[in-house]
Design a protein around this nucleic acid. Structure first.
Lengths: 202, 202
DNA sequence: CTATTTTTGCTAACGCTGTTAGGTTAATCG
DNA sequence: CGATTAACCTAACAGCGTTAGCAAAAATAG
């Protein structure tokens, strides 16, 4: 039954071509410029073929958001692995988060920038949970040293605070409404993260 | 010369009708659903008339972003005026910011949510400067008690940190990817703001 | 009061967009 | 070989922002 295998393989190739072409477009012209018709032309297929692989345009962009979460989680992993102390892990991860955001602006915007129909993201996007776990780990370790604060609300609370600080800074810088230099922005992040850690230790 | 006056008045009325119709649409269907053609139909004019009042669709939305900044600045003003101590002012303003964001989601999204072509916003949007000044004031007061830290970079840095925390939290909640209850979110904000103030006092 | 100019508003089009109904061709299976 | 199924395309629908060019109405000038 090699025939059906080849068919599947060929279909997979078309799908991959759609994604790779799409990504090129997103990278070079922004996600708003992505157009089904342009994709079709680039892959040398007619328009409806694309709908055999993706429900609609958003589904294509959604794929990149998922990829973004995978990439980010991997980079956080690497950053944390370089340090034994949880506070250093948090600092390193904040650093990694910051750099990820600006080295992968398109990914970042697709992950967080647009409403994205938001079908309760965590449900249809397990990728996001992995990212969260990476951040939660060192917070948990730090809170364990401080008894009576390891309950899940505290951890959840602190994780949310940390993420907010990072995301707030990134998105403010990204929307360009910040007339502030890159260095200063990095200092702001470090300052905020240090404040967070101090607050965490009590 | 009453004639030219009436003309101006009538033109102003059309402009106002465009804005009011647009705002209704944005409120009820989201800013992405705003359509020049639908506006034209609602105000019972033909499509090109709208372009006599606004350069393009974005210019209409831009108007609401500006309005948002005016509203926000006013609410921050009121919140701060209720407290003499700068740290309480910061807390009150964070609270006001939080509530503004969710009572005025459409405004908020237009202010910060979209790239908005971002023509160096502060330049073509003096409204934003007023908002910033409101946040900066109590920070400045607090830093004055702590000598050798009143330089403008510090103030700018702290303002950015505070704004980031607030905006990060708001936008994470707004994108709906947060499975966290409202109360907890509010606690996170208070926690973060308290951490910020503690860090500020040194 | 007529003639000219200015303002005002419209129709119709251009060139896009996402999405889908329906038919045709090619390949596979019985 | 004939029937079935999968692949694929053409063409259209219904919308979008934007603009060129023209008609009508109003205001001004002679």
């Amino acid at each position: 039954m090699g025939i059906v295998d080849r068919r599947k393989r060929q279909k997979e190739e078309v799908r991959a071509a759609i994604l790779s072409t799409s990504w090129q477009m997103v990278k070079s012209e922004g996600w708003q410029a992505l157009s089904i018709r342009k994709i079709a032309e680039a892959i040398e297929y007619s328009v409806p073929v694309i709908y055999d692989h993706f429900a609609n345009k958003e589904a294509i962009l959604f794929e990149f958001a998922k990829e973004g979460y995978r990439l980010l989680a991997a980079e956080l992993e690497v950053a944390a692995a370089k340090h034994p102390a949880p506070e250093d892990q948090i600092r390193a991860m904040a650093d990694a988060y910051w750099h990820f955001a600006f080295r992968n602006q398109e990914h970042y915007q697709l992950m967080f920038g647009i409403g994205m129909a938001t079908c309760e993201v965590e449900k249809c996007m397990p990728e996001k949970a992995a990212f969260r776990d990476k951040l939660v780990a060192p917070i948990l370790t730090l809170l364990e040293n401080k008894p009576a604060a390891t309950d899940s609300t505290s951890v959840c609370l602190k994780y949310h605070t940390l993420w907010s600080v990072m995301h707030g800074l990134v998105s403010i810088k990204m929307m360009g409404s910040s007339d502030v230099s890159d260095e200063l922005n990095k200092i702001v992040l470090d300052d905020a993260v240090n404040g967070f850690i101090r607050n965490l230790k009590g």
